[in-house]
Nucleic acid binder design. Structure first.
Lengths: 181, 181
DNA sequence: TCTAAGTTTCAATAAATAATGAAACTAATG
DNA sequence: CATTAGTTTCATTATTTATTGAAACTTAGA
């Protein structure tokens, strides 16, 4: 199983972007490879395809599973485990988004919540707390929103997405409606 | 200039989150420190406050400036450079978002665009291209949306944010309106 | 229950990334 | 134009993160 030049280039790109997307090079490559490969792959095929050690693949699989980006499949009569993307591209993007929120926002939100409950003991703390409050509110909003987006049906999302520059108009419209009564 | 325990804890937290937010520990700390400090700070004050080398601060400043998160200020009669956050919390979050889009999405979008223009030469490439097309469309949508959000006035954004779980309703509403004619 | 195909773990090692600090640079001031 | 406060650079060093591969583990089937 050898990759064409184009496909290889894509997989390598995924590797280079890997760390920006929240994992590392190898895991980025694995993810890219599984996405563009029609058939599920064994760990050995992945290791061979990417020229990395079997052990590394095993760790990568664990990580990709913790992100819920891949799933295991079994082929009757075959003892090996086969791996494939755990859903559509859209599903995967959602997972990455969700997982990153968990890692990049939630811990800070928790710290800020605690801080806000306390009473500042001097001017420095007072100013700092105001700033933290602003960050807190911002993150709360982001959190609420992402939860909201998760709740929308795929159709609604599609509709919202297609709205594009219409957002402003819909908002104005909504304001008019709400102001009437 | 010494930090209170609470404020110190916040700054350290920013350090730990730094790499998740797109920079490194030191830069995260610097950013946190500047945010909760009312007065602009000199590079030396930052180095002292965080117990890091002067050279490191200089590099951090350069990086934070490249993200457009801090600005330089001068105090008349003082030759030193003073640094302060370059805007409100909201502004800063926007900058981080924008910058990350540039680093995490744009390069991939560019690669995918190129790929999509080519003609697959076999079945593997055909399947791969379909997948890439999906990723491409998703990223285009995200890009359009973030541009759209940037364009909204702060008030509209506020309004949109407060909408929360009302999004669904507004969407349904919009659909009804649009279907009428 | 023994064998062997397959998988995971983890100590050792390699690679990448960040931090230091001394030297080079810059520019305001006497 | 020499001095010096202040800043930046970058080779060196330290730290962190990723990778390997051999040994341990797991489990299906003989």
């Amino acid at each position: 199983m050898t990759l064409s030049d184009k496909n290889f280039a894509f997989v390598m790109h995924c590797g280079e972007m890997g760390s920006r997307w929240g994992f590392n090079r190898t895991i980025g490559q694995m993810c890219g490879l599984l996405i563009i490969t029609k058939e599920p792959m064994t760990a050995n095929e992945i290791a061979e395809g990417l020229s990395i050690s079997r052990g590394n693949v095993s760790m990568g699989i664990k990580e990709l599973q913790s992100w819920r980006l891949i799933k295991v499949q079994h082929i009757p009569g075959d003892r090996k485990e086969y791996y494939a993307p755990a859903g559509t591209i859209w599903d995967m993007a959602n997972r990455v988004f969700e997982e990153r929120k968990k890692r990049e926002i939630d811990p800070t939100l928790s710290l800020l919540r605690d801080n806000i409950l306390e009473t500042p003991t001097n001017d420095d703390e007072k100013f700092a707390q105001q700033q933290m409050h602003e960050i807190h509110d911002l993150l709360e909003t982001v959190t609420k929103w992402s939860a909201e987006l998760q709740r929308l049906s795929p159709e609604q999302l599609q509709s919202l997405m297609k709205l594009g520059s219409g957002i402003g108009k819909v908002l104005d419209f909504k304001d008019k409606i709400l102001k009437k009564p």
